[in-house]
Every structure is written in structure tokens, then in C-alpha cells.
Amino acid sequence: MPRTFVKYRSLWIMVLPGLIYLLINNYLPMFGTIIAFKDFNYTDGVWGSGWAGFKNFEFLFSTQDAYVITRNTLLYNAVFIVFNLVLALTVALLLNEIKRRYMQNVYQSVLLLPYLISFSIVGYLVYSFLSMDYGFINSAVLQKLGLPPVSWYMEAKYWPFILVLVNAWKYIGYSSVIYLAAMAGINQEYYEAARIDGANRWKQMTRITLPLIRPVIIVMTLLLIGRIFYADFGLFYQVTMNTGILLPTTNVIDTYVYRALIQTGDIGMSSAAGLFQSVVGFLLVFSVNLLIRKFDRENALF
């Protein structure tokens, strides 16, 4: 052992900075999750504070919040997964039908643009449509239709629809790029043979394209299901402009943990909710990977 260590001394020095970084950024916080079981105060720190047992969790789960944030996180992600899958597959199938490569590229690039725009700017884009006083929807659309203006940022009931649309706008391009790449890998001879046998375009899509990219669809969907307990913080924080009145339909685990930590300083509640998310999230990622492995070894994480 010492001899191989000397032989590979340089390689060990190479990995050192990266390992130290992961230790600080990832492993220390993992051990730090014990504060969920502590009665934390800043003066005594993580190790010095007294134990609280499961008190933080009891508090958390006795509130209405725990139910609301879990429900919102799961429901939103479930809808995102289904809605985006259907749209992205449609977009990819149609892109795949386009004969002119150049136009295919142009469309793909434009659809991918929202993926590059940060949520701090998406917040502005949504505001330009939904602002109460001057927003495009109120001042142009609703007025023309003779309808009264809506205070979008004060009415929680509209937000599930708004967030599903914004999320689709941002991520459809990304998913369709991946499905299109999978479709591009299909051997053209299948289509040639199908055509000779008289299969029309629709038959070719449903009998050749979709079955052949099924592994990619399943892996992508499973990966998303593995992350169903994690919400997109930017979407729920920036797009709603952190508006308190919208919380019943827009509060998710990630925003709850943030608010409890930074805005109300309730370390007990936020660390309990955070650990709840970490543990359930881990179990999901882990089991989803077992599934992927069973079915497509190549794409499994382990």
C-alpha cells in the first residue's frame, strides 16, 4: 500500500483539490443534517446546541404547511413530467419530419433559447404579461374582450396553470433536443422497408420511431421521477416574485426551506423539512436507478 501510494503520488495530488471541495460542499452538509435533531442556536453552533430528538419533525408535521408543500411539490412535478413529455415528443416527432436540415436547426435553436435564460429574467418576462396595471394580458387582451382586469399576483388559483405554462416554455426545447437526437440515431433502413410495405407517415411514427426511442423516453422520465421531491426553486421563487399571498398554490419544499431559513430564521423547521426532502429524495433517486439498471444498464448511474 505505501509503495503504490508513492508510485501514484502525483495522481493523489491531482485529485486532492477536488476531493477537498466535495468534502466541504457536499459531505460536511450531509453530516450537518443532524441539526434537524437539535435545538439549534447560533452561539453554540451545530455541535454545541442541545438535542431536540424528533421535536422539530413533530412541529413541522403538525402544521398545515408540511402537507401543502409536499402536495404542491409532488403535484407540480407530476404535471410537469406528463405535460412536458407529451409536448416535447410532439415537437421532436415533427422536427424529425422536416426535410430541410437548415430549418430544423433554426427551429431547434429558437426553441432552446428559453432554456438559457435565467429565472431572474423569466420573472420579468412573466411580469410583462401579468402586471396588474400595465401587463399585456390585462391592458390588451382582457380589455379588448370586455373583461375586467385580473390581479394575477394576488389570486393563487391561477398559478398552477401559469407555472405549468412557464415551465413548459422553458424546458420543452431541452427535452425535444434529447428526443430528436435519439430519433436521429434510428437506422433509416427501417423506414425504407416500412415504406416499401406501404406504411404511411403516421404508422412509421407510431410503429418505428416511438418504439425505438422508448428506452430514452423511459430513462428520461425515470430520472425526472427520481427528482420529483425537488422543486425548481427559481420557478417558484422568481416567477411568483416571492409573493406571500400566492403561497397556498406556489409554496414548495424548496421555497419553504429557504423562507424558514433566511426570512424567518426558523432553523429547526427548515432543517427538518430539508432532511425530510433529502431522505425521501435519496430513496427515490436510489430506487429509480435500480429500475433503470434493470431495464437499461447503459444508462444507469450505478
Binding site: 457536499n26 460536511l28 450531509m30 432543517s271 433517486v285
Partner: peptide, 13 residues
């Protein structure tokens, strides 16, 4: 990649 300590301990570290 599999396990993540979450925001609070990360912030405190």
C-alpha cells in the same frame, strides 16, 4: 449525486 444534505446545513457550513 445521490444524496444531498440540503440547504440548511450547506448554508451553515
Amino acid at each position: 449525486i445521490l444524496f444531498n444534505g440540503g440547504l440548511v446545513p450547506w448554508y451553515l457550513v
